[in-house]
């Protein structure tokens, strides 16, 4: 077997037993397959706070299968290679339950290559904090009128007296014309989907710290009564992600996107959440 960064792949597996952390395995009941290319195959079973390791054999039926070359595998274990980077470069592939793979970090204490156990690294101090500040946002009369409209199941846009452009959510001014907008117009509530951002990666909600379920769709909708760039930004009903089509305008070529309508919340408070999402209108 080849050594990478001075480490034998087998040594990482052979030391698993002594590095196993039962407290980290709490609630984990799964079979992990490791296909390390030319280095071999290993099967790790974690059940009721205990582990067993089998070398070689068939990896079918594992709950999660990790495919990686020897160099990357060693790099990951000794901290030379970042897992997300390796995934990104397709040097590391995870088949099956990705969350199980993510949990493997907690199952073992860090691998220390032989001979380096006594080498004392300086303790580097790291402090974790979460800043949490309450905020109060004044809507002002323009955004306030718009949000109030949502309570009444109306989507309002504000119109520029010079160029006639509609903005929704509204702004007090039309920036290109440098004038104050003065006329309210009801738009939609249905329209044509233009852009779909099909999101596999969810960012945490800064208001709650919670991460939303994926995949989800953020969309741009050209609501009825709007033209050109006057799209409305909201969410798509999650189970219709694969059922919709984007509209396109490319020179003379026009493709119409799916017709969508809003699904209103029961309790409307004058916020973006008054519309749960948009769904296919048929």
């Amino acid at each position: 077997m080849a050594e990478y960064y001075g480490v034998d792949v087998a040594d990482i597996f052979n030391t698993m037993k002594s590095r196993f952390r039962p407290e980290g395995a709490e609630g984990v009941d799964a079979v992990f397959g490791y296909d390390i290319g030319e280095e071999g195959k290993w099967k790790l079973t974690v059940r009721q706070g205990e582990m067993t390791l089998d070398e070689g054999g068939d990896l079918s039926g594992c709950d999660v299968l990790v495919k990686v070359d020897g160099r990357t595998f060693v790099g990951l274990n000794i901290g030379k290679i970042d897992a997300m980077a390796a995934l990104g470069a397709a040097k590391l592939k995870v088949e099956g339950d990705f969350n199980l793979f993510a949990a493997t970090g907690k199952l073992f204490t860090k691998y220390v290559p032989p001979g380096q156990e006594v080498e004392q690294e300086q303790e580097l101090v790291v402090l974790k904090r979460t800043i949490s500040v309450n905020q109060r946002f004044a809507t002002g009369p323009v955004m306030g009128t718009f949000l109030k409209g949502l309570k009444e199941k109306k989507i309002l846009a504000i119109k520029c007296p010079v160029c006639g452009r509609l903005q929704s959510p509204p702004r007090e001014v039309c920036a290109p014309c440098r004038v104050r907008n003065d006329e309210w117009v009801e738009i939609g509530p249905s329209g044509e989907m233009r852009m779909l951002e099909y999101c596999y990666y969810a960012s945490p909600d800064p208001l709650t710290g919670e991460t939303r379920e994926t995949p989800y769709g953020a969309i741009g909708i050209l609501l009825d009564g709007c033209r050109k760039d006057e799209v409305f930004w909201h969410l798509l009903r999650p189970d219709q992600l694969d059922a919709v089509q984007m509209g396109i305008v490319m020179g003379d070529k026009v493709v119409h996107g799916s017709r969508l309508r809003p699904v209103w919340s029961e309790n409307r408070t004058g916020s973006i959440n008054d519309i749960r999402y948009f769904e296919i209108d048929q």
């Binding site: 004044a138 109030k148 800064p206």
Partner: peptide
């Protein structure tokens, strides 16, 4: 039509 919305930055 102006009102205040509670928010948080965490």
């Amino acid at each position: 039509n102006s009102y205040v919305v509670e928010g948080k930055l965490a």
